[in-house]
């Protein structure tokens, strides 16, 4: 590991350009990347003792989650389990208990891709080494993107949590080094690779995630489904976070976010629009997803995702809208 300076942030108010460095929270991904010398920061600023550890209800009914809340504590929170179950489920589908105990809400968003060519410093990777090429494109790309990729990068964002956050219309609250705060929709925090895949997200250098807001009155029916290669501790091949209401039997407030398929959690807005106001049926689910997948592109090993994904989403929608389940959840 390359040497670095270590300092601790006592409070977000103490952020300053002079103290700039890479933020260290749970470190479960960052320290791993530093061991591989894929991340080589000159300085680490430990933010785990800077507060931001509350989950609180806001006056407008929204829930504010401090960025240093661990994945374990967020998944176990009673408000989250009751009103935002898709978020609790997504967190519990991820990683292991040891990792969830360390990983934080802010850090989970900012974890980096697990593309094996990004991790292998002997291979070409535009994300790790801009301009070097992409060995995934013609390599073993079973886990790679089918939506929104570019000729420079087909990596996917690995988070489960961020997919649920996107489906819940969560907003990320940040503070820049100059003290200016801003709110970023969770589904717009990450970017598509384009010709700059080295940039995972839209945050500026030194911009700190302070908290995440979950809007009040989320859709009542929610579920997260993850397809993975072993029954625990594996990243998603594909995943889907779905939230909706049923209004006289018709689907409303439909939100679908997809994981394991793009450089960011993918809001399936075409499918959402196609389903809004419709009666639930398998034909309708598949038709909506077909629309969503109209520009999907496989790269060989991952072609199967184009067929798999609509079926996964249709399965979640079927289970959520089945009358027996709906009756159970009053």
């Amino acid at each position: 590991m390359k040497p670095f300076d270590y300092s601790r942030l006592d409070s977000p108010d103490a952020l300053s350009p002079l103290g700039a460095g890479k933020f260290l929270a749970g470190g479960t991904n960052l320290i791993d990347l530093m061991k591989h010398e894929i991340e080589t920061p000159d300085a680490l600023v430990d933010v785990t003792r800077a507060g931001m550890k509350e989950i609180s209800q806001q006056p407008d009914g929204s829930i504010r989650i401090g960025s240093q809340i661990t994945n374990t504590d967020l998944a176990a929170n009673s408000d989250v389990r009751q009103n935002y179950p898709v978020l609790s489920e997504a967190l519990l589908w991820g990683a292991t208990q040891q990792l969830r105990n360390k990983a934080t809400t802010g850090g989970n968003f900012l974890q980096r891709t697990r593309c094996q060519y990004f991790y292998d410093t002997a291979r070409a990777c535009n994300k790790r080494d801009p301009g070097s090429g992409c060995d995934a494109m013609k390599g073993l790309n079973r886990f790679h993107a089918i939506l929104g990729a570019s000729s420079s990068c087909i990596a996917v964002h690995p988070s489960d949590m961020a997919v649920a956050m996107a489906a819940l219309d969560a907003e990320v609250l940040t503070r820049k080094v100059d003290g200016v705060e801003r709110r970023i929709p969770a589904s717009e925090l990450h970017r598509l690779p384009g010709d700059a895949p080295e940039r995972d997200h839209v945050l500026e250098n030194g911009e700190l995630i302070m908290a995440v807001d979950l809007p009040a009155s989320p859709p009542r029916l929610q579920s997260y489904r993850k397809i993975r290669d072993r029954s625990s501790y594996a990243f998603a091949v594909v995943s889907a976070a779905v939230a909706l209401d049923l209004d006289d039997g018709r689907m409303s407030n439909v939100r679908i976010a997809l994981g394991g398929v793009a450089h960011k959690p993918w809001r399936a807005s075409r499918a959402e629009t196609a389903l809004e106001g419709q009666m639930p049926s398998r034909e309708m689910f598949l038709k909506a997803m077909k629309e969503e997948m109209s520009e999907a592109q496989g790269h060989g090993h991952n072609d199967f995702k184009i067929d798999l994904l609509p079926r996964v989403v249709a399965g979640v929608l079927r289970d959520l809208t089945a009358p027996e389940r709906n009756g159970d959840r009053t």
């Binding site: 270590y6 601790r8 470190g27 320290i31 680490l44 661990t70 040891q98 990792l99 105990n101």
Partner: peptide
């Protein structure tokens, strides 16, 4: 493994189990 994948390094810190290989000692003040 020294990369948080095997759990052989598991310790209990402030009541919670963690992978001690993925945690900097200095952060455990």
């Amino acid at each position: 493994c020294d990369h948080g994948q095997c759990g052989a390094c598991t310790m209990i810190v402030n009541g919670r189990r963690i992978n001690s290989c993925l945690s900097l000692a200095v952060s455990h003040e």
